[in-house]
């Protein structure tokens, strides 16, 4: 029972992070390898707002969320926009450089020590007993809930809202989208903003659950196999990919060796790349462009 709960929680973490990879890839064909760092930046932003807005934790959280949305949009406007029209590889390399830069800046500003945004905010994180004897921490339960809500919202946004439809249109054919009057820069900035926002929500909830150090980047990187296993351009795929990677990781930790934790996602990734390189739900032709 506890094993199942652990799988669900880890899958929710991976899914919530993976949707950020998918959003940006689907719209602009760019693989954002700074996603883990941007997610960690979101958690540090929460730490910063927690000590600034001491009135109510929700105020601090709301401000941090808005800030992370802006960070994503600004990264596009000031950095990635210059890459539009360049080779995709150049853009991907830029995200790697951005990631390294962000990591350095975060260590300088917030030090490499373990920090606890939960304490700073004054929120408690009691364990909840579930039927069947399993336990889940409040923040982990919130994380599962947040993932469900965010995926629901993203599906509704892409399916029913005009901007969501435009986002899908731009992903399919940027030139035609521009010829239909759609401002591509606005669409890409929105994708980067949403991606960073969802990643930051994951980062904040993880740090509220178990504290915040520089190793969080690794979680972001481990979510990448989840996105790729599902097929990089599919949100549904990211959900299933997260579930598969999480199930493999938790069961191998449980039955074989806890030290395998960091290796398993990439093992799954390699197996997937050998048998079905375009992922479970990905579009097959997309692969030619990677």
């Amino acid at each position: 029972m506890q094993l199942g709960v652990n799988i669900i929680v880890l899958a929710a973490i991976y899914a919530l992070i993976a949707c950020g990879y998918v959003l940006i890839y689907r719209v602009s064909r760019v693989l954002n390898l700074a996603h883990g760092e941007l997610m960690m930046l979101g958690s540090y932003l929460l730490l910063a707002t927690a000590s600034t807005f001491t009135g109510h934790p929700l105020v601090a959280i709301a401000v941090a969320l808005v800030l992370s949305l802006c960070v994503g949009a600004l990264v596009y406007l000031f950095l990635m926009r210059k890459m539009a029209g360049e080779m995709v590889l150049a853009a991907v390399l830029t995200t790697i450089a951005l990631g390294i830069l962000l990591r350095g800046v975060m260590v300088i500003v917030w030090s490499a020590q373990q920090q606890y945004p939960g304490q700073a905010l004054g929120v408690v994180n009691p364990a909840i007993a579930l039927p069947g004897g399993a336990r889940i921490s409040t923040m982990a339960a919130l994380l599962v809930l947040a993932t469900a809500v965010i995926y629901g919202a993203l599906f509704a946004f892409l399916r029913f809202s005009r901007w969501g439809v435009r986002m899908r249109a731009a992903g399919q054919n940027p030139l035609l989208a521009a010829q239909r009057g759609i401002n591509l820069h606005a669409i890409y900035a929105l994708a980067w903003g949403l991606s960073t926002l969802t990643g930051s929500i994951a980062g904040m909830l993880i740090s509220l659950d178990s504290g915040l150090t520089g190793t969080m980047v690794l979680i972001g990187l481990k979510a990448f196999p989840a996105a790729l296993v599902g097929g990089l351009d599919s949100l549904v795929g990211a959900l299933f990919g997260a579930l598969i990677v999480a199930a493999a990781e938790i069961s191998l930790i449980h039955y074989v060796d806890p030290l395998l934790s960091d290796v398993v996602p990439f093992l799954v990734l390699i197996v997937m790349l050998i048998i079905r390189p375009w992922g479970l739900f990905g579009t097959r032709e997309e692969l030619d462009r990677v």
Partner: peptide, 14 residues
């Protein structure tokens, strides 16, 4: 846009 429906193709243009 090949993966959008007819209605969505008419909804996307600005």
């Amino acid at each position: 846009f090949p993966n959008l429906t007819v209605a969505e193709n008419l909804a996307a243009p600005v």
